[in-house]
């Protein structure tokens, strides 16, 4: 089983890393990271903060782009181009395909994240700001966990809908996942039971992605404690497991 999953993951990684759209997005992010030097120069003595903020946000946007747009195409392409017709009749379980695809794309996300993070470190080195290495690594680790959840969401949708709709639905989850601050007042001070129930439903059932966002804190040298990181990791793994289960069930039933 592991061998099969690894084979699919390896193939997915190879396929997505050669995607021109991905390479173009990576190039744009590297340019943005280099551009942070200019932003820093016009920020009046807030140069390191600007580089860290814009740099980590650019990396984060790249991860989200890979998860949402590349992820939406992943299953759809195979269905439309019928490359699945060569794979599915082989001795491979459908959930192995899902897991292989998810792991492969996560590996791609990790690779482009690593490249852009190294670029950011190089820029920070020119400013002598080496104190941010660990906080930034922690930040990209947590945002990679978020990307993994979004990858699985887009895989769930791309199994039965077009890439555009899949991307739209995934973006909705992304926005809802970061709307916690807006939902909390509706939960704490509800104007009606219906609003409270809906707000609670969104807050607890949809993936709460804000916990993976420490970009706002690292610039002040604040990093979450170990317990918080472990809870975030467990949340990501369990939510990813749920999404994987849903994707496997829907894909198992799919006919071609």
């Amino acid at each position: 089983m592991l061998n099969t999953i690894f084979t699919i993951a390896q193939n997915t990684f190879r396929e997505t890393m050669r995607d021109r759209i991905l390479l173009a997005a990576l190039a744009v992010v590297l340019i943005i990271i280099a551009f942070t030097l200019f932003i820093a120069s016009i920020s009046i003595e807030q140069d390191v903060r600007m580089i860290v903020d814009f740099g980590t946000s650019a990396i984060y946007i790249l991860q989200i782009f890979v998860a949402i747009f590349i992820g939406s195409m992943l299953m759809y392409k195979e269905v439309e181009q019928k490359t699945f017709f060569l794979i599915l009749p082989k001795p491979i379980r459908r959930y192995e395909i899902i897991l292989g695809k998810a792991l492969g794309l996560t590996a791609t996300t990790f690779t482009v994240t690593l490249l852009s993070t190294l670029a950011l470190f190089a820029i920070l080195l020119t400013k002598g700001a080496t104190l941010f290495v660990v906080p930034i690594l922690l930040s990209v680790f947590l945002s990679t966990l978020e990307a993994m959840i979004l990858i699985l969401i887009s895989i769930v949708f791309s199994g039965f809908t077009s890439p555009i709709l899949s991307a739209i639905y995934t973006i909705v989850f992304f926005l809802a996942g970061h709307a916690g601050e807006s939902l909390r007042p509706l939960i704490m001070f509800p104007q009606s039971t219906v609003i409270e129930v809906v707000a609670r439903g969104i807050y607890y059932l949809l993936p709460n992605l804000e916990k993976f966002n420490i970009r706002n804190d690292i610039v002040f040298g604040d990093i979450p404690n170990a317990t918080s990181i472990i809870f975030s990791l467990l949340y990501a793994l369990f939510y990813a497991s749920l999404l994987f289960f849903v994707a496997s069930v829907t894909f198992k039933k799919k006919e071609f």
Binding site: N11, R14, E15, K82, T83, F85, L86
Partner: peptide, 12 residues
């Protein structure tokens, strides 16, 4: 199984 007009991963 060989499907009708089989489709492959073109980059391989």
């Amino acid at each position: 199984f060989m499907p009708e007009s089989p489709a492959f991963y073109g980059y391989l």
